[in-house]
Amino acid sequence: MRWIWIDKFLEFRSGEFARAIKNLTLAEEHLHDHFPGYPVMPASLIIEGLAQTGGILVGEAGGFAEKVVLAKIPRAEFFGVACAGDQLVYEVTLTDLRSEGAVVEAKAFLAGELLADAEIVFAHLDNSRANQIFGPKNFVFTQQLLGVLDLAKAQARAREAVAQGQSQAQPVPAIGASAEGGGEANGQPREPQTVA
């Protein structure tokens, strides 16, 4: 199992905002345990998905030079449950960023309805101490996790290439429809996504 709790970025505005989706499927083991016969996404994993969305937003703002760790969740409210087959949309806004860490406002939506609302505080690990304990490798932003952002960037480039009529560009993955669908997060039509 891979510790990646978002599937795709729909929108990424550096240092400001990110929107990602998480599809829930019965292929995920945890849904069979939580709960047998009633497969709902654990609230803690929704928080993890929001934190991964926010963590990448925070990390990218600093060029991934810092090791960003979830430090505190001062507030988290849940208004419903998400079941197998549902698609969650995570929207995260960076509200504060300083050298020691950052704060984000994070919301999860299901079918345009607010499902979860949280505030998340991230800390930047002290690099010298972290390197002593964990080594120089950035264990927070593994290539697997960053691959989600890389994929979104690649898809955005492919869409741009198609838009510019560069038919000789790489074959465009069939992502246009799903990206447009995601633009209706929070029940509101959105401007076209920008994945910078």
């Binding site: 430090a71 505190k72 505080v121």
Partner: peptide, 13 residues
């Protein structure tokens, strides 16, 4: 210790 960071953010805001 981690609350100190949160307190700093909130006081600034």
């Amino acid at each position: 210790s981690i609350d100190f960071l949160d307190i700093v953010f909130r006081l600034e805001r």
